[in-house]
Simulated assay, not measured.
Amino acid sequence: MVTIKDVGKHAGVSVATVSRYLNGKGYISDEAKKVIEKAIKELDYKPNQLARSLSTKKTNIIGLLVPDITNPFFPELARAVEDTAYTNGYTVVLCNSGEQKDREIHYIESLQQKYAAGFIVTTNQLEADYYRKISLPIVALDRRLDPAIPTVTTNNIDGATIATEYLIARGCKHILCVRGPVGLDVAEDRFTGFMETMKNYPNISSDIITSQFDFDEAEKKVFDYLKTHEFVDGIFASSDVLAIGAMKAAHSLDVQIPGELQLVGFDGISMGKLLTPELTTVAQDIYKLGTAATELLIQKIEGHEIENNLTELPATLVIRSSTK
């Protein structure tokens, strides 16, 4: 195995000079940089990341915290984060908190002890104070943790407005909103968009049920609701997972989509195209969200100044066959 000593000998410089070059600390002449780079290439030297992390107290590891890996939205998001990190020389460690505070704290503390370079957080189980005290760079993705923490998200209020307006434009008179968890900013924004839109249509009736972002819970709650509210002709679900649960409930009750009941989801996960009927949805640019958050985190890790702490991407209505 080629060592740092071998590189120094091949380049004709001291081990200390090679170390300064590898760690990016201290002065190195342009000539020394050239001979070290040449020696590294010719010897095919690979730095010992463990030894380097012990020296610099830093690795190229990025922690990605997600609340529920079974929700199809998060694997798609993770793919974008991993692709972007890899391109920039970083490695992603995926941590599934299961929406449990203790697990989230465990992962954060463990990665800090292993000298992670930074975190991308898509959970919000902990108080903002906890995140503010973390000394490593953090970016919030699809969640707002604190105004001081850079955030990448979609304009969820506008997205919900688009979905609600579309259901009304397609003739729906009695709309059910299947909203997400109370207190979760993403769910709250989508609920706000729906409610603000409904104020403009006093002749359209609406009702609300609340569910975790979970297939089974959404299916059960929508099934129970539709059994006693047969007049409902439109559903806005504040995630595609909720929409899929609602679709399954309607199917169990032999309610025809879109003939008797039109349905719009939110997120734009790939699974929506595999359903019958295919799901009309307010699509987030999931890949772009993951890419933007990772690039922002790398900027912070590498010491660049962040000019804008909020990156908000637009949502787009994707019309498929769950609406008329």
Rank of each mutant, 00 (worst) to 15 (best):
K5F: 06
K9P: 08
V15W: 15
T17I: 15
T17L: 11
Y21T: 08
Y27E: 15
K34G: 01
E37S: 13
I40K: 12
D44F: 00
K46R: 07
P47C: 07
L50F: 10
S53Y: 03
S55D: 01
T56Q: 05
K57S: 04
K57Y: 00
L64E: 02
L65V: 15
V66R: 13
N71Q: 02
P72L: 09
L77E: 04
Y86H: 13
Y90G: 04
T91L: 08
E109A: 03
N124E: 02
K133A: 04
I134Q: 00
I138C: 13
D142R: 15
R144N: 10
I149C: 04
P150Y: 08
V152K: 06
T153F: 00
N155F: 02
I162S: 05
A163S: 15
E165P: 07
Y166S: 09
L167P: 14
A169Q: 14
C172K: 04
K173Y: 03
H174L: 00
I175K: 00
G180R: 03
L184Q: 09
V186W: 03
A187L: 09
D189R: 12
I209R: 15
T210I: 12
S211P: 12
D216P: 00
D216H: 09
K220H: 07
K220Q: 15
F236D: 03
A237F: 01
S238Y: 12
A250S: 13
H251Y: 11
Q262N: 11
L263C: 01
F266I: 07
G272L: 04
E278T: 13
Q284V: 08
L296H: 04
L296T: 12
L296Q: 11
K300I: 08
G303W: 07
G303T: 09
I306N: 07
L310A: 10
L317M: 10
R320D: 01
S321Q: 10
S322Y: 10
K324T: 05
